[in-house]
Design a protein around this nucleic acid. Structure first.
Lengths: 144, 144
DNA sequence: TATCATGTAATTGTTTTGATTACAAGTTTA
DNA sequence: TAAACTTGTAATCAAAACAATTACATGATA
């Protein structure tokens, strides 16, 4: 299993909107860079818009950032594109046998551990901003 | 998306082997407690055996722990049942456009961040042993 | 009005998961 | 030895998640 690539594509979209801020960043333009279908991009743009990260309008070409990059963390993107639900990074097998000692109690024992593990992962994402990401991309080359 | 319940079932299996150590912990017995099919259990037993966590033999009923519980961490179980590959908790979209500034560099920028996030999650699992888990289950009740 | 963009629904192929069935092979015991 | 029981393993199946694709309604603008 793997967390959906919607997450990395979401990051890609935001980075490209920033780096292309003099041009028009349409779904077609984004799709070419990501190498996917414009409809996939539009779906993701809708999610990013709903989360207040970008501004897009029907009929008007191009997306713009709704916040400064330094105020958008990877966690914001992660939540926006809906790749992992709260407390559901790990799935726990349902309906173990209630007559059994282990079956009756294991879920409550395991759940807080799984939640803590998920939180630790998410905290790493909280500490990286899109500004960091774009800065790193920009450092790799001088000319587009 | 969610990490497969193979992980929580694997934990369930090890805990029950310990708590039932006076009886015979067969795949059928385990399947009843987990509430699944014995063949599913046997597949997982094979994985746990391969990882050196339990001892099982063809024809001989029941599994035994191959190590003390205090020497088995949740990370060991997680690796044993193969729910997440190394560096692959997050999937990154493949083949972004190489002519694009962002497309060319985003993978290398994102990858170490994703790896760090995965590692943070895994480190939580490394710090919990099966002894902790079984102790917690045992604390919940006095009689089986 | 013609053109182009976004928003959104429907369809399709792929992959993963978990359940199930079936059976070969090993072990025990009557 | 034969019957009964266990593990090991392969094959099959349905359900769910993903991503790609097509199609079309709606909004904006020249």
């Amino acid at each position: 299993m793997s967390i959906s690539s919607r997450f990395s594509v979401g990051i890609h979209i935001l980075a490209l909107i920033e780096l292309n801020n003099e041009g028009v960043t349409s779904s077609e333009f984004l799709a070419a860079s990501v190498n996917t279908n414009p409809a996939v991009i539009r779906k993701l743009m809708g999610m990013l818009k709903k989360a207040g990260l970008i501004e897009v309008q029907p009929g008007i070409a191009g997306a713009k950032l709704a916040k400064e990059l330094s105020r958008i963390t990877l966690f914001d993107v992660y939540k926006a594109v809906n790749v992992v639900q709260e407390k559901e990074l790990f799935s726990i097998h349902g309906s173990p046998h209630p007559d059994c000692f282990v079956g009756r109690n294991i879920q409550h024992t395991i759940e807080p551990i799984f939640t803590a593990a998920q939180l630790a992962m998410e905290n790493v994402l909280r500490n990286v901003t899109m500004e960091d990401v774009v800065g790193d991309i920009a450092n790799k080359e001088n000319i587009c």
